[in-house]
């Protein structure tokens, strides 16, 4: 019982056999001025960022502030509880600012912990994950990206997208099995 649904075009998929092919195709797609497109690969292809014109990830900035939060948290936790509100004298060590070196291990560990959490969640946020449903998953051939195929997808929301011309362009740069992917509305 097929339901009649409204559909809109998500974009074109094109398959490439090797990293070399998809690298050269990416250079041409980049030079043709497309902006809403991506290359789905089974492993990170080094050098593809330049071929696609993708900028370096801004993740380190988030992590820097995440780590700084960790350092401050650990220092405050130790200093406030051990020095300010409940001065704890252990082995005749001072309970003032000069006791700080004894807190370094904890400050170090929490810096790493907060940075690591920021890295993981920042990375997911930048990648737009988790997102369990995506128009591309409707395509039968798309799932080959996680095995051995390099798939270029040019999205319909790209201003340069044109249903006939983009298809011809993908053929021209060497794409195979070109497929129009639709998204149910």
């Amino acid at each position: 019982m097929a339901k009649t649904t409204l559909k809109k075009v998500h974009g074109y998929l094109a398959e490439f056999e090797s990293a070399v092919d998809v690298y050269h195709a990416s250079e041409q797609i980049r030079d043709a001025g497309f902006s809403r497109w991506d290359v789905h690969t089974p492993y990170p292809v080094h050098g593809l960022n330049e071929a696609m014109g993708v900028k370096r990830s801004i993740l380190p900035w988030f992590v820097f502030f995440g780590g700084a939060t960790g350092t401050t948290t650990a220092f405050s936790l130790a200093f406030i509880t051990q020095v300010l509100i409940y001065p704890t004298i252990v082995q005749a060590k001072p309970t003032n600012i000069f006791t700080t070196p004894a807190f370094f291990p904890i400050m170090f560990e929490l810096t790493i912990l907060f940075s690591a959490f920021t890295t993981l969640f920042g990375c997911f946020a930048l990648m737009g994950l988790p997102r369990w449903n995506h128009p591309l998953f409707a395509s039968k051939q798309f799932k080959k990206f996680s095995d051995d195929t390099f798939i270029v997808c040019i999205e319909a929301r790209d201003p340069k997208f044109h249903q006939a011309e983009t298809k011809a362009f993908l053929e021209q740069v060497g794409g195979k099995n070109i497929e129009l992917v639709e998204d149910e509305l």
Partner: peptide
């Protein structure tokens, strides 16, 4: 998580991997 292996994802992924490696080393 709905991974699609797009290079725009790999870009952040590889940076995260590098950062976690750099954090785990002193750890």
């Amino acid at each position: 998580l709905g991974w699609r292996g797009g290079n725009r994802q790999w870009n952040h992924y590889e940076m995260a991997y590098l950062l976690l490696a750099a954090l785990s080393t002193p750890l």
